[in-house]
Structure formats: structure tokens, C-alpha cells
Amino acid sequence: MKMNTIAYAALPLTLALALAACGGGASEDAAPKQEQADGADEAAHADEGKITLTQEQITSAGIQIDRAMVGGSGTLELPAMIDGDPQGTQVVSAAIGGRVVALNRNLGQSVGRGDTLAVIESREAALLKGEVEASRARLALANSNLSREQRLFAQRVSPEQDLIAARTAATEARIAYQQAQGQVSAAGAGGGGLNRLGISAPISGQVIARSVVLGQTVDANAELYRVANLSSVSLSLSLQPADAGRVRPGNAVTVTASGRSAEAKVTFVSPALDTATRLVPVIAKLDNRAGQWRVGEAVTASVQLTSEGSGGAADGVVRVPSTAVQTVEGKSVVFVRTKTGFQAMPVTLGDNAGGSVIVRSGLKGTEQVAATNSFTLKAELGKGEAAHED
């Protein structure tokens, strides 16, 4: 009886030891399994973005390999408009109101400085010219009186006071005559009659606009013609503020339109945004002595960008063809050639540079990238990710 009591007392202890032994074995078995799972995750991350392809598969897919370019700050291609050079364009206006009785130049014709472009007939012109004639007569009379007083004073017949008065009157008459001539010059030139006034060209150039017709009555300061010296023209561009920060006076601009091409130079980058468009106005000067560019013509401008580095140096700027860039999961990537295929490299992009794009980070510039048909690699990458999720 006593022996049985001892046996029952030892049973719970034996069971506990057995359970402990079983639990310890389960824990030891779980550790290697967890290590294997972690290793699989690490291998999956290591293979992320990798695409394995043979050379035959790459050729069959039409994927062309190109090397990333280093150096050159790139260009920015955008639409632009040809304008007349602001320094070489003049508005010819009527200084007085009246009726247009002559128009001596048509659109496109050349003019020289001082050439009479139009003749205006008006009462005001008659008054201006009449004052010139009257002041000329008064000046002639004053000069005659002065000569007589000088002669009488020399003969000691007339007192010095009369000579001084005659000299003063002659001076005043000369000033009045010069003022009358100045008023006529400010209004125009001779028009062939007392009541007619000619309007002269202020510069040499070409007539690019005519705002009146023969017989029309115009007000003072009304525009009659617009004359431009088109040996050089302006190129008007509008840039995003981020791009304008990399454009400076002196930067080259390649202008193309309808089989024509020429080089221009940036002369002005506005320090303020246009209130309507919120863009930065930029002006470039274009040589037009050959007459191949027309005011108002729409063209394409390729603006040379200045590097963001110190001193404007272009070294170290990495560029790739625009066709090499794809978007994967909302991020820009470039497929870099590896020994076994390609690796999708996330990149940070800069400005478009015509057919290429600047890569701010993600590439060193020594890589070979998929430049053509890179979208097939994007599709292949998507298949691999889908299989991995399954």
C-alpha cells in the first residue's frame, strides 16, 4: 500500500518532465524554420528589380543598349514667337489731327530715316506753318532795325540805349523763329502746302504695319505706321520658374521652323513672373540680315541650360535618352544592363533636354541602359512581381 502511494506521487513529476522535453524539441525545430524564412526574404529583396535575359532574348525584344552621357547641361525645348527687336521698332504717329492726304509707303517696303511716310492736311498745320512765316518776317525786320541802329550809333547819331533795344528785339525775334521751327519739326516736315504737314520715318527699316487709309481723319498721336529694323529680331519665350533659374544672358538658343535653323543668344531673363501666365519671360536676339525670319512667326526654340553646379560648369551632369525612363509603382526607373540581364535602378530626374533627360541621382554615368523598347522590361518586371506574390 505504501509502495503504490509513492508511485502515484511521482507520476505528475514524470509527466511534467516529458512535456518539457517535448516543448524544448518544438522550440529548437522552429528556430531553423524562422532563419530559413528570413533568408528567403533577404534573397527576394536582393532579386527585386532584376530581370534575367539572354542576349538572344534582348535582341529578339528589340531592346537597344546605350551608354548614359556625362557632361553638358542639356537643353530645354519649347515653343517661341518671333518679335521685332524692341530697340529697332518705332511707331510713326500723327503729332497733329487732320486728314490723311498721302501715304507714301506700303507694307513691306523699305524706308530711310527722314523719308516722308504720310502727309496730313489740317488747320493746325496751317497755324504752325503760318507762325513760322510770321516769325521769320519779324526776325528779318528786327535784324534790319539792328543794322540801322548799329550804323547810326557808329555815326554818333543814335544813343547806345537804342542800339541795345534793337539788339534785344533781334534776339527775341530769333528765339521766336526757332521755337516756331521746332514746333513744325516736332509735328512733322514740309508737306507741300501751307496747310499740310509731312510725317517722317524716325529710323531706317521696313514697314511692318499701316493703321490708316487714304482720306481718313485721324486724331493727334494716332498711329499711322510701324517701322522696324529687321536685320535682327527678338525671340520671345516663356519658361517655368524652375527652368528659368538655369537660363542666363548669353546662353545659346537654337531656333528651328520649316526646314530653317539658326542660333540666337539670350539677352534678357525677367526677374519677375508674368502676372497672367505665371511664367518667366525670356528674350533672345536673332540675326536676321538674311531676312529668313518673320515677325509673328511661331518657331521651336532649344535653349541651352546652365548647369546647377558652381560656376555654371557642365561637368558631371548625367543624361539618358528620354525613352530609357519608365515609371514603376509611381517612381522613375532606368533599366541598367547587367551580366545576366537588367536591373531596374530608381532615379531622380531633372529637366528635359530635347531627346534626353537629366538624371540628378541614381546613376554614375558609366552605366549601359536600355534606351529603346524599355517598356518591355517594365512589363517583364511586372510579371516577375506577380509570380512572386503568388
Rank of each mutant, 00 (worst) to 15 (best):
S185Y: 06
L163P: 03
V157Q: 09
I164E: 12
S158M: 02
D243C: 02
N251R: 07
R248K: 11
S158E: 04
V157W: 05
A165E: 07
Q181F: 01
P249M: 03
F153Y: 14
T171L: 05
A186K: 01
Q155V: 00
V157K: 08
Q179C: 00
T171E: 12
I164N: 07
S135G: 10
Q240F: 11
A140S: 14
A244R: 11
A220P: 01
A244I: 12
E131T: 05
E223N: 15
A201M: 05
S185R: 14
A166Q: 05
R246K: 14
V247G: 07
L224F: 07
Q181W: 05
D162A: 13
L141Y: 14
N229E: 09
I164L: 14
L197E: 01
Q206K: 15
R138A: 15
A220S: 14
Q181S: 08
G182K: 01
L194S: 12
V157Y: 09
S185I: 11
R151W: 00
A165G: 01
L146G: 01
S204N: 07
L141C: 00
T217N: 11
G198D: 04
R136H: 12
E160G: 07
V132P: 09
F153A: 15
S234P: 00
P241S: 12
R136W: 10
P202D: 06
Q179Y: 02
G245L: 14
R156P: 08
S232P: 00
N229I: 04
R174E: 11
V132A: 10
A242C: 04
